[in-house]
């Protein structure tokens, strides 16, 4: 799901579940490599919501979460940030990072 200022709180900070937010941009190579990985994790991990923030269009959100490098992944649980990390990684590694909060 594409996230913006309009739907971010409703989807992420007001959610009871676990949400993985992917901060990315179309000009970012590693983000492009990570996109299919994130989609697969989304499909394979039940009870996980995945949202994508295009930082070109949402600089405020990027600033709010101190994103200074992309891809940056932020994991929310019950509306709170429980993990934040940057850089590309494999599918299993990303899966492990999110499932530990489920």
């Amino acid at each position: 799901m594409d996230l913006s200022k309009e739907n971010f709180d409703q989807t992420v900070t007001e959610s009871d579940g676990v949400v993985l937010v992917d901060f990315w941009a179309p000009w970012c190579g590693p983000c492009k490599m990570m996109a299919p990985v994130v989609d697969e994790v989304d499909g394979e991990v039940e009870k996980l919501t995945v949202g994508k923030v295009n930082v070109d269009d949402n600089q405020e959100l990027a600033m709010q979460y101190n994103v200074l490098s992309i891809p940056t992944f932020v994991i929310f649980k019950g509306g709170q940030v429980v993990d934040q990390f940057s850089g590309s990684m494999g599918k299993e590694a990303l899966k492990e990072r999110v499932t530990k909060h489920l």
Partner: peptide, 17 residues
């Protein structure tokens, strides 16, 4: 400060500065 201002990739992260 990796990913919090420290970077080895200007093309990836320059945008934020």
């Amino acid at each position: 400060f990796q990913g919090k201002g420290v970077s080895a990739c200007a093309t990836c992260d320059g945008f934020f500065f």
